[in-house]
């Protein structure tokens, strides 16, 4: 992977800027992104992998291979699934250190705060935290 985390974040910011802050177009686009998310194996959608949000469920599985963390995820709501797919696109296949160091500024830039806003509304904020925890755990193991 030659693109950095920030390269991809900038790409995403660029894509969303074309939606002109129109909320309906934004949601529609997020849902489309969700449909592109590689399917998660049903067996991985287990209790251990649930990232608890109040209204939507998110499953997240992280595996380390060749010094990199590979993420698989899914959600039971279409919009959260789209948001999850963005995180996977940015953070999957990165080294633990890259994940720990990542500054996810795209969230502010594309106005996703309102989707994450309250921890109660969906599992995205919790998922970001969980990915960071995986990053920390794997980087500690590597040392």
């Amino acid at each position: 992977m030659s693109e950095t985390i920030n390269d991809i974040q900038n790409e995403i910011i660029e894509e969303f800027s074309m939606l002109d802050s129109d909320m309906e177009m934004t949601i529609e686009y997020i849902m489309e992104l969700g449909q592109q998310l590689p399917e998660m194996a049903e067996a991985l959608k287990n209790e251990d992998n649930i990232v608890k949000g109040c209204q939507s469920k998110v499953w997240l599985n992280a595996e380390a291979k060749d010094g990199k963390i590979y993420l698989e995820a899914d959600s039971n709501t279409a919009i959260t699934k789209g948001l999850v797919s963005i995180l996977v696109r940015i953070l999957s296949g990165r080294t633990p250190q890259e994940i720990v160091d990542a500054d996810l500024y795209f969230v502010d830039k594309i106005g996703l705060n309102r989707f994450i806003g309250t921890q109660r509304s969906n599992g995205l904020g919790a998922m970001m935290k969980q990915i960071k925890i995986y990053g920390l755990a794997y980087s500690a193991k590597a040392e």
Partner: peptide, 14 residues
């Protein structure tokens, strides 16, 4: 077939 969270977000957008 539609999660209530998705419905709520769409209605808010409208």
């Amino acid at each position: 077939g539609i999660h209530h969270f998705d419905l709520g977000m769409w209605l808010d957008a409208k």
